[in-house]
Structure formats: structure tokens, C-alpha cells
Design a binder for these strands. Structure first.
Length: 426
RNA sequence: GGAAGGUUGCCAGAGCGGACGAAUGGGGCGGCCUCGAAAGCCGUUGUGGCCUCCGGGUCACCGUGGGUUCGAAUCCCACACCUUCCGCCA
């Protein structure tokens, strides 16, 4: 959630920032108007309450002093004030919730550093790593779904039989490779990130905190009977890990990581990139997340990005780094770098990590604060996160990149200890 | 799923209709004492909103949401969560 006080004091800069996203900012004037009315009425309501308190105190005193007649008189007066208060309070509450509803749907202000632009095509490729377009041989030009079928390690048909399209089943060494990637993704970050294993089903409030609700309700699986949501990423439970808590500045930056299943309905993307592992409803991912002060945020952002890159590099994969333009940023993000692995078999760049800085947008929703060591009061933390390793697309990248001329796959050295020492698949 | 008990400030814990934003103890912070420390003594110590002539004023918050009342931490109702027991279960 953006800070309504900023909107109040400097509406033009808020509008300018949101315009960079391509947002329609006409709703903001509505908020400003509602906010002014809300505050005026609230102040009136408080005055009435103050009066009621005073009168009631006097009633108590009169009873003690044995003057019940005078007390009765004052009680009538207070009752009248009470009626006024009810009317005012109802109006204030209604305005407040109206403002809150609108505000929950206003996206974060993009960082000044985020590139100008409105669509995917305006994203800036800031670098390519380990990539040489001419370095690939014909035996690497086989899409992973074909490799998976040839080697019996990916069973798309049965995945569909069990759960429908865009659900997959890994088999044999394919499943082992999944698990290896997960452990590899966790172990290599265990030096600085505390491993967590949060619930995969969460309450509505938990989804609201990250910004996944109410705006993106269609993208999430909802278990109506229990009013629980299947998390689309571990970012959701980890961001709410410290919800409604006040942290010590000394504990920041707090760095957490978790492997979870992730569930996405992918509404509106039917028929797009649906082959193989490019887009699936359920997948595994290792997520890195941090709570930080505003000053610490840039360093943490760089750290998560570096770690995500190193994990891919050590798997022998090529990738590129994108700086997302203002218009292509996720609603909660102020700045995002995407990592895209090059998959030679499908000849596509596959997004495997989104490393984002959310400023205090998510933490204001989640009410995560910290107590600065050298000043009074509390401040809202910043949150940052990124995929340490997203299994299916990395799986695809590994299988296509490391396919050898005999059709087998050579397993990257870093994964071998997690695969019972195996060096090849097939 | 059933039964009982519980939820108060940083922690423990009192309060059970009126001077309670909340006793008392512990902790933290500041000071006195001391070469220094401990002990002791004194003071101080929640969060948030709005307004502010920046001195302060005012409102809200005792699990959450409603209700009763002139007045609710205190009474009533519902719900959530925790603990224990029973049932079920990997």
C-alpha cells in the first residue's frame, strides 16, 4: 500500500510516478477528496466523544455525591450526544473502508531508477552472461518435452491424466533432478539465509499483505470450504512471517529462504507457452526474502540477484538480466530484475527469477515495523525477494543445455552429490 | 468433531461497571553511589490516527467483531486463537 500521507502532501509526484506505469490516476483525486472528508468528520466525532466522556465522568461524580436528579439530567444530555456520535462514526467508518478498498488496488510507485516504458518490449536487457548463440550443437536443439519423453523422465500425459492440462509429472531421474535442484538451491544460500518451511495454504490476510489480493484474485487457487488460498510463491507466507510485529534494527536485514510448492491458475494464459514445463499450475521453487531498512535495501537487492545468478552459472547455463520498465513491474514492486535462462532446445529465454525491491509497500500492508536504534518510535521495513531457484524452467534449461550427442544428459557437477553420485541421465 | 480452561502493556500478573491507558513485580533506559561492578535508592519507559500557535490537545487500542449502558478491560452474544483431555489420523 502506498502512504496516503504522501498522496495527501504531494499528489502530483504520486500521479507522475503511477503514470510511468501506465496507470489511470483519476481514482487518486477521489481518494484525496474522501480522505479530507473522512478526517474532518473523524475530528468532529472525536470532539463529541470527548464531550460524552466528560459528561459521563460528571454523572459518576454526582452519583457519588448523592445527587441523582442532576445525574439523570446529564444522562439525557449524554444520550443525545451519543446519537450524534453514532451518525458521525458510521460515516467515518464507511469512508475509511472505502478509501482502504481503493488504496489496496493502487500499485506501488516505481523506483526512479526503473527504466521508462509501458510494455515488456521496453524492458532493458542489461547484460548477457555465458551466452554465445553460435556455441550450440544440433543435439542441444531438442525441446525438453521431447528429451523428457525419450529418457522417460518427464511424463506429461500422466500429469494431465491426474490433474488436467498444465500439470506435469516427473519420473525416475527426472524427479530426482527436481529434488536435487531444490536442495542445491537451499544449501548454497544457507550461509546467510535462514531456511523456513512455511504452510502452503494461507489465510486471505496473508495474501493481501503481498499484494496478491484483492487485485489478482483470479490468479490464485482458493479453497472455499476453508477460505484458504494456495500460495503462488513462498514470498506470500514469508512476507507475513513478521506480520504485525516490531523488529529490532539490530535484527535487520533479516534473511529467509524457503522451498515450497507454488500454485498458479495462470488465468488468461491458456494456450500460451503451455508445452512442457514452460508454464505449469504447480511447481517447486526456492525463494529468498529479506526484511531490511531503507538504507540496507540496495545491498540486499544486489545480494539476492548475485545469488540467483551464481546458482544458474554454476549449473552451466546461459542467461540474461533484464531491468523491468516501470510499466512491466509487478504491482507491488518498485524495481525488478528478471533473470532469463537460455533454453537452446526451445530457443527461448525462460524467466527463472524475478528479483524485486518492494520498498515499504508490502510491509505497510503486512504492518511489519522496526525500532530504529537511534530514534524514537517505529518505522516500516522494506521487503525484497527473488527466486533462488525455480525448478521447472531450470530443469528445462539444464536438460536442453546439457544434452549430449548420444542423447543422454550430463549432470552438472554441483548437482551430482544430490543425485546419488550419478553423472548422466539416460 | 466433542469437552474444559484461557487470551490484559517488553515479560509475569492484578483489575470484574465510574478518577483505569490500566496496580504490583521483573526487564529496559537515565541518574545517584563506586576505582569499576553488584546491591540499594531516585526517575523514566506502549502503539497508532487527527489537530497543533510544536508547549501540547484529542481520540482509538486490554484476542476480534457486535450488543447493553450516561459511562465497558470489567456485563451479554458470536467468532478466532492457545492449552489440556477425548475421538480421528500421516
Amino acid at each position: 500500500m502506498i502512504d496516503i500521507r504522501l498522496l495527501r502532501s504531494d499528489p502530483d509526484s504520486v500521479k507522475a510516478a503511477l503514470t510511468r506505469r501506465g496507470e489511470d490516476t483519476s481514482g487518486l483525486d477521489q481518494i484525496i477528496g474522501l480522505d479530507a472528508r473522512q478526517r474532518a468528520l473523524a475530528s468532529k466525532r472525536d470532539d463529541v466523544r470527548n464531550e460524552i466522556k466528560n459528561v459521563s465522568r460528571q454523572v459518576g461524580g454526582l452519583h457519588r455525591d448523592g445527587k441523582p436528579d442532576e445525574a439523570t439530567e446529564l444522562q439525557a444530555q449524554s444520550r443525545e450526544l451519543g446519537a450524534q456520535e453514532d451518525v458521525l462514526a458510521a460515516e467515518v467508518d464507511e469512508l475509511a473502508s472505502e478509501i482502504h478498498e481503493i488504496l489496496l488496488r493502487v500499485p506501488n510507485l516505481p523506483s526512479d531508477d526503473a527504466p521508462e516504458g509501458l510494455t515488456e518490449s521496453d524492458n532493458v536487457v542489461i547484460r548477457h552472461e555465458h551466452w554465445d548463440p553460435d556455441a550450440y550443437s544440433d543435439h542441444q536443439r531438442v525441446p525438453h518435452w521431447e528429451i523428457g519423453e525419450q529418457l522417460g523422465i518427464l511424463d506429461a500425459e500422466r500429469g494431465t491424466k491426474l490433474s488436467g492440462s498444465m500439470f506435469v509429472m516427473y519420473s525416475g531421474m527426472g524427479a530426482t533432478l527436481c529434488r536435487a535442484l531444490i536442495q542445491y538451491g537451499l544449501d548454497r544460500n544457507a550461509d546467510a539465509y535462514r531456511e523456513m518451511r512455511p504452510p502452503t495454504l494461507v489465510k486471505t490476510a496473508t495474501m493481501v499483505s503481498t499484494g496478491h489480493l484483492p487485485k489478482f484474485e483470479e490468479d490464485a487457487y482458493h479453497l472455499e470450504r476453508d477460505d484458504l488460498w494456495a500460495i503462488p510463491t513462498a514470498e506470500v507466507p514469508l512476507t507475513s512471517f513478521c506480520r504485525d510485529e516490531v523488529l529490532d534494527e539490530a535484527d535487520l536485514p533479516m534473511k529467509l529462504m524457503a522451498h515450497t510448492s507454488c500454485f498458479r491458475r495462470e488465468a488468461g494464459s491458456a494456450g500460451r507457452d503451455t508445452r512442457g514445463l514452460l508454464r505449469v499450475h504447480e511447481f517447486d521453487k526456492v525463494e529468498l526474502l529479506s526484511y531490511a531498512t531503507r538504507d540496507q535495501a540496495p545491498e540486499v537487492h544486489a545480494d539476492i540477484l548475485a545469488r540467483a545468478e551464481a546458482a544458474i552459472t554454476d549449473l552451466g547455463l546461459s542467461y540474461r538480466v533484464l531491468d523491468l520498465c516501470a510499466g512491466d513491474l509487478g504491482g507491488s514492486s518498485a524495481r525488478t530484475f528478471d533473470l532469463e535462462v537460455y533454453a537452446p532446445g526451445t530457443d527461448q529465454w525462460l524467466e527463472v527469477s524475478s528479483v524485486s525491491w518492494f520498498s515499504d509497500y508490502q510491509a505497510r500492508r503486512a504492518n511489519v515495523r522496526y525500532r530504529p536504534t537511534d530514534e524514537k518510535g517505529t518505522r516500516i521495513v522494506d521487503t525484497l525477494n527473488g527466486s533462488g531457484l525455480a525448478v521447472p524452467r531450470v530443469w528445462a534449461g539444464v536438460v536442453e543445455t546439457h544434452r549430449q550427442s548420444d542423447g543422454t544428459i550430463s549432470i552438472p557437477e554441483v548437482l551430482q552429490p544430490y543425485m546419488r553420485g550419478a553423472t548422466t541421465i539416460g
